[in-house]
Design a protein around this nucleic acid. Sequence first.
DNA 1: AACATTTTCGTGCGTTGTACGATTATTCAT
DNA 2: ATGAATAATCGTACAACGCACGAAAATGTT
Lengths: 239, 239
Amino acid sequence: MARPKKVRHGDAVLTHEHIVATALRLADADGIRQLSMRRLATELDCGVMSLYHYVVDKEALIEALVDQVAREVVPPPKGVAWREAVRHIAEATLAAQLRHPWAIPVWSTSWPGPYRFALVEQLLDTLAHAGLPPDVADLGFHALTNHVQGFAQQRISFGQLESRAEVTRDRLEAMIAQGKFPRVAEHVEFHRSERSAQDEFGFTLDLILDGLEKFADGEKRPSVLRAGREDGDSRDSNA
Amino acid sequence: MARPKKVRHGDAVLTHEHIVATALRLADADGIRQLSMRRLATELDCGVMSLYHYVVDKEALIEALVDQVAREVVPPPKGVAWREAVRHIAEATLAAQLRHPWAIPVWSTSWPGPYRFALVEQLLDTLAHAGLPPDVADLGFHALTNHVQGFAQQRISFGQLESRAEVTRDRLEAMIAQGKFPRVAEHVEFHRSERSAQDEFGFTLDLILDGLEKFADGEKRPSVLRAGREDGDSRDSNA
DNA sequence: AACATTTTCGTGCGTTGTACGATTATTCAT
DNA sequence: ATGAATAATCGTACAACGCACGAAAATGTT
């Protein structure tokens, strides 16, 4: 009978929000690889299995974490032009991802939660009001999100390559020192230089937006795409 | 003294190539999540720790696996125009990734091996001969690779969403059924329709290439980028 | 007071990567 | 041929993981 008397160890009440918030803190601090259910339970001062009353499994937990990051993306002000709205969404999403680098690799992999759904809806809706043919809007959506996602990924990869992690850096230096990859060497040099501190993100963003805008209001027709869905923008948000 | 006599169980000789080839087969068959050192050793009919004589750790193994995928990308024929060369590289890379879907999430995450380095070099070199300002080439490189990577990612995500995995599909249906995301519903419908069977990949690829081409041979200057690196294409492959 | 429901969590199972050191096979100098 | 050095193989063991199961406690209801 030498059982511990109290069953609830922690002082605070255990809730979904509290669990997710704590997990988010741990992920921000030590990365997502260091986040285990055991560590999370220890941090929350509760038993491991208690967590499973609020979260079906670890995957669902991570989904919730990513969704919290998506939640940080503040929507653009109402009434701005579509290009500005898109730019706002893209930049805000990038910023949120860079604030939580661990989320970047899982962003596209994990199932989207409600906040990420809302974010997608927002971007799609913005593009739908841009006067683009529906097909172009659908494809443009992916072009834009791919840019954001890829840029974030590249940033952290190069970032952790440059800062610490001598092993990684030495490996790059060794590869370049072979002399077999002069263009890669130049490219790395470009990223190290101040030139690349310019608005790289905006450059490619504008490139995509310019490309899309050409299709606005019948100015140009998508050549590689078959005709279809000519209804235009008939359906509104509450139709 | 009841020790097993033979130490080498398998018949074939254990080499790095053999290990990587077998691991690749297992990954293709059951996905990378099912690939464990133990399973690999079992398949090779050797002890688990024997693997570590040829591979420093599992991460290095996976790097080698991804590099094998990069190896499958055949270079474009010599002498073709730069746009065709870029298109070739992009399409071949996409095809290789889709042949090994498990590699897609790890492609950007894992350290690049020699074959992926060569692939990067190839694309950079192609862009360097396109008459683009160096900065534009460097940024265009990322725009292109992000498109390939993102497209591949989206393809497998949507693919495994549509085929089996009823759970996942039901979750999407439930989200849409809420009626809060009409644009997402349309977008999913677009991807399900025949329209999206068109050359979506090429459309966005052309969009990027068109955008880049405007900067060729001084036709246009990058506006958001500060001047710099005006040397143009002075350095050749063997300078 | 008695019961039902929700919340908590200890125990244990199966699996993972890999550190350590022993064993065996191979090569080479003598 | 013989011994020593080197390379290759692998059994054992450890710490960590996600989580299934079912018991215990807390809380709510009547």
